[in-house]
Design a protein around this nucleic acid. Structure first.
Lengths: 183, 183
DNA sequence: TCACAATATGCAATAGGTTGCATAAGGAGG
DNA sequence: CCTCCTTATGCAACCTATTGCATATTGTGA
């Protein structure tokens, strides 16, 4: 049910088509949750059959028709109930750590390469997040921003803290491996 | 295929039964990867049919018989190939962040409660990790430990960095919410 | 001109994970 | 004594996610 509720959150402030929500999963929303367009369309259909969302057909010329979805009163109620439940803990699945544990049979250089690749990924995320922080939050006071922007600030800060921690760890780990202290 | 390879890593240093591996998923290995006993048994059967592991039947009195699995030469080769592939990036699915984004309809107190619950969870993890670090690593030099213990040290350090970052973020977020700066 | 990206939706098959249930014997605690 | 936990394995049904494919048109770049 999690994905369904994420779609309800996406429809909280504005109506949208499945295509638009899918694109949001590639941008801001994608830092919290990811889903393919097939998942989005299937789940919107399910939500519609449960009466949690409704859609209007939009005829278009030269482009495919589309369905503009909106939250129903029932949808809002269901979302509120879900938001009040404590967030489920996700199963841990950290492929990098498993590969480190198998480091004996691939050697230090391979581990360094794997860790460095992830570090660079996180460094890019970090720069992106810090750029957003500078552009949208450093100039103005929180109270001058919309509630949505203030909530996004909390999530942005989480991204910064966690990405920075990963980068710090990776540097330490790479240094230990480089100096032959591990394998 | 990821789970199968995790099982191969678990069998790298010692033979084990499905039951024993399942218990490891509740302890050390569980910090990297989690799987249910049903998953473990099913996957071991699959690995066996592919010739990557083999088992010996162990008859027991007063207890159920068991199957002691070990890695085959083919299994070790397959594992090595997998360890050399760059770790796959996992889909982002952060329910807490989604719930924060929906904070407008549940209010600041509810968000604080959700964040505090996760923070306490991470504080416990952090204490556990720091305890392990003190007990196993602070007293002796890395070079006096086994390779496996040294590799585990890298993963332990990751746990510490990331858990600490989460706790730091959560304190900041809780403080902002408490002071009514967000919702 | 030809191929490809963007817009817009979706079905079908497969893979992977969760939940519920089953079996069976011994030991611990109330 | 009765129930629950531990040991030890596994099947079956279900839910969720991934991958591949399909359709149709307009605009863009090589």
């Amino acid at each position: 049910m999690a994905l369904g509720n994420v779609l309800l959150v996406a429809l909280l402030h504005k109506e949208a088509t499945g295509y638009e929500i899918t694109r949001e999963f590639d941008s801001t929303l994608g830092h919290f949750w990811q889903a393919s367009h097939q998942q989005v369309y299937r789940e919107l259909g399910k939500l519609e059959s449960e009466g949690l969302v409704a859609y209007r057909d939009i005829k278009q010329e030269g482009r495919p028709d589309k369905k503009r979805y909106r939250l129903t009163a029932n949808g809002r109620r269901a979302l509120k109930a879900w938001l009040q439940e404590p967030p489920a803990t996700r199963r841990v699945n950290d492929e990098l750590l498993v590969k480190i544990l198998g480091g004996e049979i691939v050697g230090a250089e391979m581990l360094q390469a794997h860790i460095a690749a992830k570090r660079i990924e996180q460094e890019h995320r970090l720069e992106l997040f810090q750029g957003i922080e500078r552009e949208y939050y450093k100039g103005s006071k929180l109270e001058d921003l919309s509630t949505e922007m203030r909530l996004l600030y909390l999530t942005l800060r989480k991204g910064i803290f966690v990405a920075q921690a990963f980068v710090d760890w990776a540097r330490e780990a790479e240094s230990l491996l480089r100096r032959g202290r591990i394998v």
